[in-house]
Amino acid sequence: MIVAGRDGGEGVRLVLETEEAMLLSELADQVDSVLLLGEVDDPALGRLLPNAYPDDVTAAQDFTRYTRDSLVDGKRQAAQQVRDATAVDDDTGLVQIELDQAEAWSWLTFLTDLRLILAERVGIVEEGSDESDETRDDYLRAAYEWAGFVQGSMLEVLDPIKG
């Protein structure tokens, strides 16, 4: 993967290997599914939609009632945007993606939501001792680290540390 600035403009340019694009597309689809189908008590959803009033049940319920739909919509749109941008039909080599500032924010928030979900899933797996989970655990951890690398690289371009 290459993450670079755009010629003469704000935003970021990504160059992905086909496999990387396919992986991101698949992960984005999974994040969308968690947001669409996730059970209310799914702890991963709790990470994406935290309780704004931990000490006040009524206020917490009101806050959720007023904010949940638009938060879920925004997060789903970000995930769908990443999924569509990374959708590749076949092995065509490199996938080039240009993002303006607003599109880059969608990617940054998607990568955050993805990492929150993966962190929750890995945490759950860690509690078990079933060896069959280890491969899945490794896969999730790798995806978690990689998503962090992509996000960090994007931030270096979008928000370079001056002098």
């Binding site: 990470r47 994406l48 939609l49 935290p50 309780n51 704004a52 009033y53 931990p54 000490d55 206020a59 806050f63 007023y66 904010t67 638009s70 938060l71 925004g74 997060k75 928030t109 955050t112 939501d113 929150l116």
Partner: peptide, 18 residues
Amino acid sequence: MERHAEAMHGYGLQATVS
């Protein structure tokens, strides 16, 4: 403050209002 908390949740940060 609720608007800010909602925005922070949109960014994936853990925010509360008090």
